[in-house]
Simulated scan of single mutants.
Amino acid sequence: MEKTTSRRRRAIIATGAMAVAAAATTTLGVASPALAEPVSTAGCARTFGYDGGQAQIDNCAGNGVKGWGWVYGAKSASWTTAYVKLADGNQYALTADANTTNTAGWNSPVRTVVICNHYLVGWAPPIPYWSCSKEWTV
């Protein structure tokens, strides 16, 4: 009984914290520069981070594709999406659930990436909101 009550309290506190965060966001989908994490580079691969979510883009992966991407879902989010624009004009969304990863390859190099963390707040029905980074050039 005590474990169940403790879990419920944690769920209520977490939901309350997410609701406060949602209320503090004045516009959906707007980047918050204060939350943007540094961008790092290593060889051809570039790693981008935003509020716990991460994406890595490699335009010279050497595996037969011209553009390759990896995304890590922020632990605090319901899921994280890396939105990429390719040199050929196509756009794709690469999504990973919280604390998981996902990869994809494309037949055109990646030109830009935006990382968005998506949240579901409350129950019956949950209210969706999201927060996104700025658009980075790869």
Rank of each mutant, 00 (worst) to 15 (best):
G52E: 03
Y50L: 03
G73M: 07
G53T: 03
S40P: 00
G53I: 01
G53M: 05
I57Q: 12
S40N: 06
A77D: 09
G64A: 08
K75V: 11
A61K: 10
G52P: 02
N59H: 06
F48N: 02
G67H: 06
I57T: 07
W70V: 05
I57N: 10
D58K: 07
T47R: 14
V65Q: 15
L35C: 04
L35V: 04
L35I: 00
K75F: 13
C60Q: 15
G53E: 07
L35N: 07
E37R: 02
A45H: 03
G69C: 04
S40L: 02
F48W: 02
K66M: 15
A36H: 06
C60V: 07
A74T: 02
G64Q: 06
T41S: 14
G43M: 12
V71Y: 08
K66L: 15
V65M: 14
D51M: 01
Q54T: 12
I57S: 09
T41I: 11
G73Y: 08
A36E: 15
A36G: 04
G43L: 04
T41A: 15
E37I: 00
C60K: 13
T47M: 10
S40Q: 09
F48G: 03
P38M: 08
L35A: 13
A42Y: 09
I57Y: 13
A74P: 05
G49S: 06
A74F: 06
V39P: 00
K75M: 07
N59C: 02
G73T: 09
Y50I: 05
F48L: 09
S76R: 11
W70L: 14
N59E: 01
Q54R: 12
C44V: 03
I57K: 10
W70T: 11
V39Y: 01
V39H: 07
N63W: 04
V39D: 08
A36Y: 02
G52R: 05
G52N: 03
N59A: 05
C44L: 01
C60P: 05
C44I: 00
V39W: 04
V39I: 11
P38R: 11
C60W: 12
G43A: 11
D51V: 01
D58Y: 08
K66S: 15
N63E: 10
G43I: 12
T41W: 02
R46T: 15
W68T: 11
I57C: 01
V39S: 10
W70N: 13
Q56T: 15
T41E: 13
R46A: 11
A42G: 06
Y50K: 01
T41V: 12
K75W: 12
A61C: 00
W70F: 13
Y72F: 11
Q56P: 00
A45S: 10
G69I: 15
G49C: 02
G53C: 01
G52S: 05
G67N: 11
K75Q: 14
W68Q: 15
P38L: 13
G62M: 08
C60G: 14
N59R: 04
N63Q: 10
A36I: 07
G73D: 13
Y72R: 10
V71I: 14
G64T: 11
G53F: 04
